[in-house]
């Protein structure tokens, strides 16, 4: 149990996917103008990351880690995972539109944005590298890491949106308006998150 808690804390704070691994920067800047949309995006990412972690783990266990005629196929991991995640997101989108229209209304616009998101792919690959596919305990750790990473992503996005909402009202020099100041702010935010580096978990 302690191990799972450690994974959550590590992925949310210490190794935050956006602020210390620098994955998923595209939505981090693109969808962080309003807290509301940032939270919506965070929800969609949580949803997709969890599903993708599970799906890619099974793909790895039953397809990629099996040696066919002495050939090791694990180098196809990246390309296979992209394929899996993209189709999974498409499938989920269709499924939601049909069976859960209200959820589709709130997540729908964000789902196509995450099909090839590098944070989602990053989680899937890091899961395999960190935990392997030997036991089903690894699957539980994988899911925990997927959820934790998504929570960390949501946290970073909402924090950024909160700052940018206030920045809108601030008098910023003309040359810094818009993206430049957002870059500076995200740098400072990443520096702040570096403070978690010395954190000793258990």
């Amino acid at each position: 149990m302690n191990e799972l808690l450690a994974i959550i804390i590590a992925t949310v704070f210490v190794n935050n996917y956006v602020l210390s691994r620098f994955l998923g920067l595209c939505p981090f800047f693109g969808v962080s103008k309003k807290i509301e949309t940032a939270a919506g995006m965070g929800m969609a990412v949580t949803f997709v990351m969890t599903l993708a972690s599970i799906a890619t783990w099974f793909i790895e266990k039953f397809l990629l880690s099996i040696k066919v005629g002495g050939h090791d196929l694990s180098y196809l991991r990246t390309v296979t995972f992209i394929l899996v995640i993209a189709s999974l997101v498409q499938f989920v989108e269709m499924f939601l539109q049909k069976s859960m229209p209200s959820l589709y209304q709130s997540l729908g616009i964000f789902l196509p944005l995450i099909t090839t998101n590098c944070a989602v792919l990053g989680v899937a690959i890091l899961n395999i590298q960190n935990f392997g596919v030997k036991t089903y305990w690894a699957l539980i750790k994988t899911i925990t890491q997927g959820v934790g990473a998504a929570l960390g992503f949501t946290l970073a996005l909402v924090l950024m949106a909160g700052i940018r909402e206030r920045l809108e009202l601030e008098e910023v020099p003309a040359c810094f308006k818009g993206m430049p100041i957002a870059f500076v702010v995200s740098g400072l935010l990443a520096l702040a998150f570096m403070g978690f580096n010395g954190l000793k978990i258990f």
Partner: peptide, 30 residues
């Protein structure tokens, strides 16, 4: 064989997902 196997592998996987998606598009058509 060294090229053929991964090509076949990814190709089959793509075909499989494509089929699943096209069936899903029909099944979940709104």
């Amino acid at each position: 064989m060294g090229v053929l196997l991964p090509a076949l592998y990814v190709g089959c996987l793509g075909l499989f997902f494509g089929l699943v998606l096209s069936i899903a598009a029909k099944a979940f058509h709104v």
